[in-house]
Simulated assay, not measured.
Amino acid sequence: MKKSDFYFDLPEELIAQTPLENRAESKLMTLNKNTGEIEHKRFKNIIEYLNPGDCLVLNNTRVLPARLFGCKENTGGKVEFLLLKRTSKNQWETLVKPGKKAKIGDTIVFGDGVLKAKVVGMGQEGSRIVDFEYEGIFEELLDELGTMPLPPYIKESLSDQERYQTVYSKHEGSAAAPTAGLHFTNELLEKIKEKGIKIAYITLHVGLGTFRPVKSDDILDHKMHSEFYMVSKETAEIINSTKAKGGRVISVGTTSTRTLESIADEKGMIHEGQGWTDIFIYPGYKFKIIDGLITNFHLPESTLIMLVSAFSSRAFTLNAYEEAIKNNYRFFSFGDAMFII
Rank of each mutant, 00 (worst) to 15 (best):
G113L: 13
A175C: 11
G111E: 05
I104Q: 09
K101V: 13
F132W: 01
E140D: 15
K118I: 14
I219N: 10
M148F: 02
Y201V: 04
S159G: 06
H171Y: 15
I199N: 08
L141Y: 02
I202V: 15
D143V: 09
I108F: 10
N90Y: 03
L158D: 02
L115Q: 04
S174W: 02
V119W: 03
M122C: 10
S226K: 13
G136D: 09
V119L: 08
F184R: 01
W92Q: 07
E172L: 14
T166V: 06
K223D: 12
V114H: 05
S226E: 15
V96C: 09
H183C: 04
I199L: 13
P178D: 05
Q161S: 13
L84P: 00
S159H: 00
N90R: 11
E135Y: 12
L182N: 03
P149Y: 08
K103R: 14
D221A: 15
E144Q: 10
V114T: 13
Y164L: 03
E187D: 12
L142H: 05
T179P: 00
G113I: 07
V114N: 01
E172G: 12
E93S: 08
D112E: 13
E227P: 11
S159M: 03
T147E: 13
G123M: 02
Q124D: 14
I129H: 01
D217K: 08
V114R: 01
A176R: 00
Y164A: 12
G123I: 06
I154K: 00
A175R: 02
P178H: 09
G209V: 03
L145E: 01
S159A: 11
G99E: 13
K116T: 13
V167Y: 06
V119M: 11
V120S: 03
H171W: 04
Y164C: 11
L204N: 08
D221S: 15
H222Q: 07
G111L: 03
